[in-house]
């Protein structure tokens, strides 16, 4: 169960699992501590998502999916 903290912080769990993990989090100090450590990591990954291409600097993130 503890290894769900990464998937949780990235927001990539299915709805049901996401909620189950939150209930686990309520009672698990280890995962609470890891959540604090990892909380801003997804934003750093977003740098890749948002990295502007040379032609379209202001495009929203979705533009990369084409």
């Amino acid at each position: 169960m503890h290894d769900g903290v990464a998937a949780y912080v990235l927001g990539v769990l299915d709805e049901e699992e996401h909620e189950a993990f939150e209930r686990h989090l309520d009672a698990c100090e280890r995962c609470q501590a890891e959540l604090i450590e990892l909380a801003e990591l997804p934003e750093q990954l977003d740098e890749l998502r948002n990295a502007p291409s040379s032609t379209s600097g202001d495009d929203p993130p979705m533009s990369m999916s084409r």
Binding site: L38, L41, Q44
Partner: peptide, 23 residues
């Protein structure tokens, strides 16, 4: 996938910390 993601994210955080961009 879930377990690899856990170790992958931990490793990524270590890398970024070594580069001085993670807390």
């Amino acid at each position: 996938v879930k377990s690899r993601l856990y170790y992958g994210i931990r490793a990524l955080r270590e890398q970024l910390r070594d580069k001085g961009v993670a807390g």
